[in-house]
């Protein structure tokens, strides 16, 4: 997940951060620090995502060339881990748990309702870059299923018909990107 710093950076960044030479230089410096040993691809991708907020195609191609790793292999790693994202993330990342407990207690319906409400699919971001939608595994709150997380805040016993209310504070920017809402249990890192 994006950290507090880069979340803010992403907010203030231009539409096309991948065209910013300063960011690319910063990335190269980090990668150069890793030396040339095997296994630098994943750390390099992590650094890139921290810098850019996501992994733009141009940056991935740059990494492929710089590390001399075939582009298809780079893409294979990026698409394997749901941690990596090739599309810009929204200010709020909504993650719907589809672990067993949540799944049987209506997680699927919650997901369908969120997709419907936000008008995006899993892995996508709303036009206004406010929300991204992803699926999560267990958040460790099974007894209170179904559960969703919005950034670091866990929302429990979510009901599809009350989604609008739940998301309203985010929609109206009443919640800071990295602040828990206070009313809900805050989950640990996932």
């Amino acid at each position: 997940m994006p950290t507090r710093e880069n979340q803010e950076l992403t907010q203030t960044m231009s539409e096309h951060p991948e065209d910013d030479p300063a960011l690319l230089e910063a990335l190269d410096t980090v990668i150069d620090g890793y030396g040339s040993e095997k296994g630098v691809l994943i750390p390099a991708l992590q650094s890139a995502q921290n810098l850019y907020g996501f992994l733009p195609e141009k940056v991935l191609k740059h990494i492929s060339k710089k590390l001399n790793i075939p582009y298809s292999e780079v893409a294979g790693v990026v698409t394997f881990y749901s941690y990596f994202s090739t599309v810009p993330r929204g200010k709020y990342l909504v993650r719907v748990c589809l672990g067993t407990a949540c799944y049987v207690r209506g997680g699927k319906e919650v997901l369908a309702a969120i997709k419907d409400y936000l008008g995006i699919d899993v892995g996508e971001t709303t036009q206004d870059r406010k929300f991204s939608l992803e699926i999560g595994r267990c958040f460790g709150a099974c007894s209170l299923a179904p559960v969703i997380m919005v950034n670091d805040t866990v929302h429990q016993r979510v009901k599809p018909e009350r989604l609008k209310e739940l998301l309203a504070p985010y929609e109206n920017d009443e919640v800071e990107a990295n602040e828990g809402s206070g009313e809900e249990t805050t989950g640990g890192s996932v």
Partner: peptide, 18 residues
């Protein structure tokens, strides 16, 4: 290295990038 597994689980496909 033009071909590698892309995506994971049932979505895995053996193909060029993405």
């Amino acid at each position: 290295g033009a071909l590698f597994p892309q995506y994971r689980g049932y979505r895995t496909t053996i193909s060029p990038a993405f």
